[in-house]
Design a protein around this nucleic acid. Structure first.
Ligand SMILES: Nc1ncnc2c1ncn2[C@H]1C[C@H](O)[C@@H](COP(=O)(O)OP(=O)(O)OP(=O)(O)O)O1
Ligand SMILES: [Mn+2]
Ligand SMILES: [Mn+2]
Length: 439
DNA sequence: CATTCAGGACAT
DNA sequence: ATGTCCTGA
């Protein structure tokens, strides 16, 4: 789970303050901004309307209240919510083109970036921000009386384990008056070395929440978009917290609440454990909740899984995640793809060339834009394809180094790569029929 | 017949 | 370095 990934150098596990900002029903908000007449109406974004109303990829909160979900067909959404507005992903070059949402995501990230150099975009609509420096600075200012928390920055703020944020603030205030209030419990529960960070954890996360409030207000003011945020000492917990109160809210996950919270948290809720590996973990350990992992020693976990995953699980189950926020604004790869399901399978050479042309055209446009923006050129191209081989779906990918390229040469390279790696490219006796249909 | 993306780990 | 698989938006 973590090897090439960079870890923060040996500070305490609780020294950082990390934000995860995630846009609310993002593609829907992009459509609502573009079409103000759709605001306050249930709305979903679909790809390809003709077949059963298209596939839904985003649902706004009014439509969610009616039971509409991602993966549904547009037709199903209409059944549940006849008044729903279905926006289509633009069809350009006969394929869905998501550039509009990528651009909107970049607009948001540009605002976020002003708050820290340590910004890592994690998807089109979310980013991690390491705001440790800002928090530490405000902490000092607060101690010298130069900074006070602004209550309006904490509206829509929640703290896990507390009925409302006021209770969390009161707890911090009381501890300030009586520093030894929780200290016995801290000394029992944490490493000696971590105690200074443990004692300051709540107040530093609260300051983090005030920063988060400013970040989210700036995003709203400058882009019109609303978002939610999680505030914690690491990426895994910030991500988890961000999803707990939405939309337009922010959630602190206090250090001392992590253990009890994990006791009833399904394993699959943790990023990285939502798929097959999470299933294997539950099966192997005979558990359902994250807190149950702490019953196992690190060596046991390493034996049942492997060294790295064992250590990772051991730490994560204790709320410990040392993965650094690695600054990255631009994507490492640019790609596009299209599926040809059922009777749309590509069976002829001419059709294959046509679609390679369309895909290459989009790629080439985006590469040119990227070159103008970032002054970089593609070094490698990868062509991925799924073939029908004796009724089986077989996925393959082949790559080649790139020196010079344009739309036309990308087509040529990709077709050559597919040819060179398909045993019998054309059906015997034919000059145009593919031996293996492309899906 | 969800689809269109993107990043990371592992085996070789 | 290359190809495959996994995870997640
Ligand atoms: N499986 C998918 N296929 C294609 N696009 C997707 C998929 N999942 C999400 N997206 C797109 C549409 C979403 O608006 C955008 C951000 O995803 P995500 O943050 O998970 O949900 P969301 O922003 O729509 O709602 P939420 O308010 O719950 O965050 O990415
Ligand atoms: Mn989102
Ligand atoms: Mn997201």
């Amino acid at each position: 789970m973590a090897s090439a990934r960079i870890h923060v150098s040996m500070q305490s596990k609780y020294d950082r303050v990390v934000l995860l900002v995630d846009m609310d029903c993002f593609f829907c908000q992009v459509e609502e901004k573009q079409h103000p007449e759709y605001r306050n109406r249930p709305l979903a974004v679909v790809q390809y309307n003709p077949w059963r109303g298209g596939g839904i990829i985003a649902v706004n909160y009014a439509a969610r209240a009616k039971g509409v979900t991602r993966h549904m067909r547009g037709d199903e959404a209409k059944d549940l919510c006849p008044e729903i507005v279905l926006c289509q992903v633009p069809n350009i070059r006969e394929k869905a083109d998501t550039s509009k949402y990528r651009d909107a995501g970049k607009e948001v990230a540009n605002v976020l970036q002003r708050f820290t150099k340590l910004l890592e975009r994690a998807s089109v609509d979310e980013a991690y921000l390491d705001i440790t420096e800002t928090v530490n600075h405000r902490m000092q200012q607060m101690q010298s009386g130069a900074f006070a928390l602004q209550p309006q920055e904490l509206v829509n703020t929640f703290a896990v384990g507390y009925p409302n944020i006021g209770d969390f603030v009161n707890k911090i205030t009381n501890r300030f008056a009586n520093p030894y209030m929780d200290d016995e419990r801290f000394q029992m529960s944490y490493d000696q070395n971590d105690l200074p960070a443990v004692r300051q954890s709540d107040i530093r996360l609260l300051i983090g929440a005030s920063v988060a409030g400013e970040v989210r207000a700036a995003v709203k003011k400058e882009t019109g978009y609303e978002c939610s945020a999680g505030i914690a000492h690491n990426k895994i917990l910030a991500k988890l917290a961000a999803g707990m109160n939405k939309p337009n809210k922010q959630t602190i996950l206090p250090l001392a609440e992590t253990a009890s919270f994990f006791d009833s948290l399904p394993v699959g809720k943790i990023k990285g454990l939502g798929g097959k590996f999470g299933e294997v973990v539950c099966e192997t350990l005979g558990i359902k909740f994250m807190g149950q992992v702490v019953k196992f020693t690190e060596v046991e976990l390493q034996r049942k899984f492997d060294e790295k995953n064992g250590t990772w699980l051991f730490n994560i189950s204790r709320g410990i995640d040392m993965e650094a926020v690695t600054p990255r604004f631009y994507s490492k790869s640019i790609g596009c793809c299209k599926k040809f399901p059922g009777r749309n399978n590509i069976t002829g050479l001419k059709t294959l060339q046509h679609w390679l042309g369309e895909l290459s055209s989009e790629i080439n446009d985006r590469l040119e834009k990227d070159f103008i923006e970032n002054n970089r050129r593609a070094k490698q191209m990868v062509v991925q394809y799924v073939q029908d081989i004796d009724g089986e779906e077989v996925a393959s990918s082949r790559s080649t180094a790139l020196k010079d390229y344009d739309q036309e040469s990308i087509v040529r390279f990709s077709l050559d790569l597919i040819k060179a790696n398909t045993k019998t490219f054309l059906r015997p006796g034919s000059e145009s029929a593919l031996n293996n249909a492309i899906k």
